[in-house]
């Protein structure tokens, strides 16, 4: 993959330096250093409770951080930044629960942030929303309300909604874990297409096969630290750290979503 070599050279879009976070006493994130180059796709893997969700929420300024810094496109942002709302517009995030707005149609869900937060006209916002829904294979569902959509469709609307402010980075937190296995494929396919299109993404996932396929880089988290990172080949075929090996062995013995 020649693509990656050129990517690494670019300046990072999102950079976390020495990021620490505690909930009460326990340290949930312990001096995380992580940077994403433009167009790069990074997957976070790790056992439940290793801090993947916390990392994504801190990066999106949804949680205050205790130490360290977050740099977006070269400018430092901090959790107590008074312009945190503006920063959030430059980062898209999708959680595992869809939290679509039930009183709005798919189209209105996607068009809301461009219209309200970016100040686009309704026509311009809806045009953008339509294009995104089409891109995610939901053109026919534009006027449907969330409760009449399948879980996979809802999750794709949520992705379209997160993309609607044209974020520099898309943060995705286990967005397939609440879905039927049949529906997972649709969502993963949509993400693959986004990755091909050059979207910069940071993805927390339990889908090892997907991670191996889509990621440029894998980070293995344990106890709030990045224990090991590297290309998918390296992490999945020849992990160096014994903790990474132990985790992958556990995942494989469970079967289903392990690396095929």
């Amino acid at each position: 993959m020649a693509r990656k070599a050129t990517k690494r050279a670019a300046a990072p879009v999102l950079e976390l330096r020495g990021l620490s976070k505690r909930y009460g006493r326990p340290l949930v994130l312990d001096k995380i250093d992580l940077s994403l180059a433009e167009h790069e796709v990074v997957c976070l893997i790790g056992a439940s409770g290793s801090g993947k969700s916390t990392l994504l929420r801190c990066a999106d300024l949804l949680e205050p951080i205790d130490a360290g810094s977050i740099t977006l496109d070269g400018g430092t942002v901090s959790a107590d930044d008074r312009d945190a709302d503006a920063t959030r517009r430059q980062l898209g995030i999708v959680f595992q629960g869809f939290s679509l707005f039930p009183h709005l149609t798919a189209l209105e869900n996607v068009a809301l942030a461009p219209r309200v937060a970016l100040g686009l006209t309704t026509a311009a916002a809806e045009k953008r929303a339509r294009a995104l829904l089409k891109q995610l294979g939901l053109a026919a569902k534009a006027n449907a309300y969330p409760d009449s959509l399948s879980g996979g469709q809802q999750q794709r609307v949520a992705i379209a909604r997160a993309l609607a402010t044209e974020p520099k980075v898309l943060l995705l937190d286990e967005i397939t874990s609440a879905l039927d296995p049949v529906l997972v494929a649709d969502v993963l396919e949509a993400l693959r297409a986004l990755a091909k299109g050059g979207m910069t993404m940071l993805i927390a996932t339990h889908e090892m096969a997907f991670a191996a396929d889509v990621a440029d880089r894998i980070c293995y988290l344990e106890g709030g630290r990045i224990v090991e990172e590297g290309s998918p080949e390296k992490i999945f075929k020849a992990p160096r750290d014994p903790r990474t090996r132990a985790f992958l062995k556990r995942v494989r013995s469970v079967g289903a979503s392990a690396l095929r």
Binding site: D85, R88, S99, F101, L112, A113
Partner: peptide, 23 residues
């Protein structure tokens, strides 16, 4: 619902006005 709205970059007031209150 409010969290989702804030994550999209809506201010607290916008989240209330467009997401919470209508529901």
């Amino acid at each position: 619902q409010e969290r989702a709205a804030r994550a999209l970059g809506l201010t607290r007031f916008q989240a209330l006005r467009y997401v919470v209150l209508p529901q």
